[in-house]
């Protein structure tokens, strides 16, 4: 059974990977925080408007060392998902994340961010409170952080909502997660004028880990247990932990100036054009 499953898993279409990334049983950010870190203290609120349950953040220890950790939080049932807004953060979520990034920076502690969101929330309040500004500001401020910063995409990397906490010096990605500028369904309905052509859109946009590694958007693919992360949360968490520690190591020896330059150069060189 396991063998059949894993051989089928070698031939997944991008849209099937999207389905795995979105699976309701897929481990959430809090599942991973509990397995990977110790002494987690969740912090709340943006000191401005409110607290956002769709984005959790706090203090924790990784292998005995103090770090800040944050990530989008989905639910495992409809009820939980309603409480967590399906992992779609509001501006106050992004502002809380930035507040805690700055605490980490002032105290010279590394930051780990975990990405799992369909996208930033699209609603009246989110617009009124400046969803665009909140994300834009995070993008600018993340490049200025003087501490090591590692991002792991664990499920859905939904556009600006993902990038809003995702500008690590290193960006790692679980095998069956996705990272995309728009959902395949959204892309299909806009460019292909047919939401049912999500498969074509998923294929065309190159949203899977191997494609993103080739494009230079991510630095490493983290293996998932056979059948996907939900089949063995401990194993998946342990793979993530090893990858974080491996990539954090070399960053710890960089100076503040080098860390900023490293992050600037990483994103500065992204893009393809001719001249």
């Amino acid at each position: 059974m396991k063998n059949k499953e894993s051989s089928d898993f070698n031939n997944l279409t991008p849209l099937q990977i999207v389905q795995i990334a979105r699976q309701i049983q897929r481990p959430t950010t809090l599942d991973y925080i509990n397995c990977i870190f110790t002494d987690f203290v969740e912090l709340h609120g943006d000191r401005n408007f409110g607290d956002d349950p769709a984005l959790v953040a706090g203090l924790a220890k990784l292998d005995g060392c103090s770090v800040a950790v944050m990530g989008h939080q989905k639910g495992k049932s409809t009820k939980e998902n309603l409480a967590r807004n399906f992992g779609m953060a509001n501006p106050e979520g992004y502002r809380k994340a930035l507040r805690i990034m700055r605490i980490a920076e002032r105290n010279h502690k590394p930051i780990i961010s975990l990405i799992d969101t369909p996208g930033a929330y699209c609603g009246i309040g989110a617009e009124e409170r400046g969803q665009a500004e909140a994300i834009a500001k995070n993008l600018r401020e993340m490049t200025e952080l003087t501490i090591p910063f590692v991002t792991v995409i664990t499920g859905e990397g939904g556009s600006g909502g993902a990038l809003g906490i995702g500008m690590g010096n290193r960006v790692l990605m679980l095998e069956y997660s996705i990272y995309s500028v728009i959902s395949p369904e959204g892309c299909a309905s806009i460019l292909f004028r047919d939401a049912k052509r999500a498969n074509d859109a998923a294929l065309a946009m190159k949203i899977t880990a191997p494609d993103l590694l080739k494009l230079g958007v991510i630095d490493e693919i983290i293996k998932e247990p056979p059948g996907g992360a939900h089949n063995d949360v401990q194993q998946s968490a342990s793979n993530i932990k090893s990858a974080i520690i491996k990539h954090l190591g070399p960053l710890l020896s960089l100076s503040q100036r080098e860390l900023i330059a490293d992050r600037y150069n990483k994103f500065r060189k992204m893009g393809f054009f001719s001249e």
């Binding site: 990038l163 190159k206 500065r268 893009g271």
Partner: peptide, 26 residues
């Protein structure tokens, strides 16, 4: 908004332009 025909690279331009503005401010 983003140019979807460039997939994830269009998203990365948000990071790139914002990073440059950070430098300008510094």
């Amino acid at each position: 908004g983003a140019r979807m025909q460039e997939g994830i690279m269009s998203l990365m331009q948000m990071a790139k332009t914002s990073a440059a503005l950070g430098r300008l401010r510094e």
